[in-house]
C-alpha cells in the first residue's frame, strides 16, 4: 500500500497548529495509549535507560503534563507562550505493521513576557492508523540547542 503523503503531511501540520495554539486537550487526543513523547538532553542519540532527557513522557506522564498546563497555576506558562512554527523538509517511510515514520525540520518563534526566542530542530514522528485515522505513537524532537542552557521549555515543542 502506497503511503498517502498528503494525509501524513496534513496530520503533521495539524499537530503543529495544536501545539502553536496551546490546544492541550485536542493535542492529547492525537496520541496512542503507548505514546512516547521524547526530547533528548545533551545530544541527539542518547540512551534513555542510562541518560536523562528533557522530556521522556509515557501516556500517563503526558496526561499529568497536560493536567498541569490546564491548571491555571502552571506559573512558567502563565502567561502562556505565543508561538508559530514552520514544519518542512518532510520525509516519509513506511514501517512495519502499517506504521509510518516521518521526519521533518522545524523552526519555532516563541514569545513570552516580551522576549522572543527561536527554537529549531528535527522531529521524528511515528503514526499509526487507528479506525481509519492517524494517531501519534511517538514523537522525538532533536533540538539544535539540546546541550545549551534553556530557561523555559514548558510549552508543547
Amino acid at each position: 500500500m502506497a503511503v498517502d503523503r498528503e494525509k501524513v503531511e496534513q496530520f503533521i501540520y495539524h499537530e503543529a497548529r495544536l501545539t502553536d495554539e496551546n490546544r492541550y486537550d485536542e493535542w492529547l487526543a492525537l496520541w496512542t495509549d503507548d505514546a512516547l513523547y521524547w526530547v533528548p538532553c545533551g545530544r541527539d542519540d542518547i540512551d534513555p535507560k542510562r541518560e536523562i532527557s528533557l522530556i521522556y513522557d509515557d501516556r500517563t506522564r503526558l496526561e499529568t503534563r497536560i493536567t498541569r498546563l490546564k491548571s491555571g497555576v502552571a506559573h512558567a506558562q502563565e502567561p502562556k507562550s505565543r508561538m508559530r512554527r514552520i514544519v518542512s523538509n518532510i520525509e516519509i517511510e513506511e514501517g512495519a505493521n502499517g506504521e509510518i515514520t516521518a521526519f521533518a525540520n522545524f523552526m519555532l518563534a516563541e514569545l513570552r513576557r516580551g522576549v522572543q526566542d527561536i527554537f529549531a530542530g528535527r522531529t521524528i514522528y511515528r503514526l499509526r492508523l487507528v479506525d481509519g485515522a492517524f494517531k501519534l505513537a511517538y514523537k522525538k524532537v532533536l533540538l539544535v540547542n539540546n546541550d545549551e542552557y534553556i530557561d523555559n521549555l514548558t510549552f508543547l515543542i
Binding site: C41, K49, I55, T64, R68, N152, L153
Partner: peptide
C-alpha cells in the same frame, strides 16, 4: 538506575513539571 532518571525528569529541568515554575518566580 533507570527509575532514578525517570523520577528526576518529572520535576527537574527546563521542560519538567516543577523547576521552571521556580525560575519564573
Amino acid at each position: 538506575n533507570q527509575i532514578r532518571l525517570r523520577s528526576h525528569e518529572a520535576f527537574f529541568g527546563s521542560a519538567s513539571l516543577g523547576g521552571p515554575d521556580d525560575s519564573e518566580i
